[in-house]
Design a protein around this nucleic acid. Structure first.
Lengths: 141, 141
DNA sequence: TATTGTTATACTCTATAACTATA
DNA sequence: TATAGTTATAGAGTATAACAATA
């Protein structure tokens, strides 16, 4: 079977991304979290009192789609809302949330290290440099 | 705003992949095709008489999910089904399908060239090598 | 006026199970 | 028995429009 797609960098990128996403989701399954839940916890850990809108901006998710994510995490007792003013609130960890954050952090760190370990050492810098040219918004933090 | 995600290769890969997918979909919009439609046409062009199941295997799509893709392309008059035996059929281009295939081919080639052009020349080989280690199934053609 | 959170809705992609007919 | 195509269904991610409350 002739598969010319496998010679295309853009296609390889897509399949690689999907494969790593599947791995990540599998790792998170033991915590009963989705990738978006874990990413949200990760950002709350780095930015206490961050608003749902700000999380959405960083993750590239519309604020309307943050509602069910925040709702799930709150329902699980992992986060609480702290009013910042009359219309917005900051997201913070509960005690259980902080423990979950540590586990998420561990999974992310290990997975990322695992990813890097598969890439030939001499290619790693080039790989990251290439990704940054393909997603220019990465620099707008 | 502190965004530690942007330091993670796996996350950069995901955002890069999504950005390129959006670009690809935008390019295909003028042909009124989806990415899965275009990929299917691309594989039919390289493999006349290929079956839907085989296309699904190459694309990583369940054969059940090939049904609406084939149905769309047939409804548009781009492909026809040629019975291979009593239970399976091969997919072939109609005249309009071959013309559309040429356009798809053009868009894919140009986009892929565009992608490569953004990556520093000295990083390209490393980039592709890295992707292949992250999606090992690429070699099972 | 602009922004935040929210609701409602719809579309896409994908996974699974089950059915049929054929090999 | 195994395989190809199909149907039906559900989950997940995402986009859009509109609304109320507040800045």
């Amino acid at each position: 079977m002739n598969n010319p797609l496998n010679a295309l960098p853009g296609y390889l990128l897509r399949r690689s991304s999907n494969a790593l996403q599947d791995e990540f989701s599998t790792l998170l399954a033991e915590l009963e979290l989705r990738a978006s839940d874990a990413s949200t916890l990760f950002l709350v850990g780095a930015n206490p009192d961050i608003t749902p809108s700000a999380i959405g901006t960083l993750l590239g998710i519309q604020r309307a789609n943050m509602v069910p994510i925040i709702g799930r995490l709150e329902k699980k007792g992992l986060i609480r809302r702290v009013a910042l003013d009359g219309r917005s609130y900051g997201v913070n960890f509960t005690e259980a949330g902080r423990e979950m954050y540590e586990k998420v952090n561990q999974i992310i760190s290990q997975h990322e290290a695992d990813i890097l370990s598969r890439i030939p050492a001499e290619s790693r810098k080039h790989f990251i440099a290439a990704l940054k040219t393909l997603w220019p918004e990465h620099s707008t933090d």
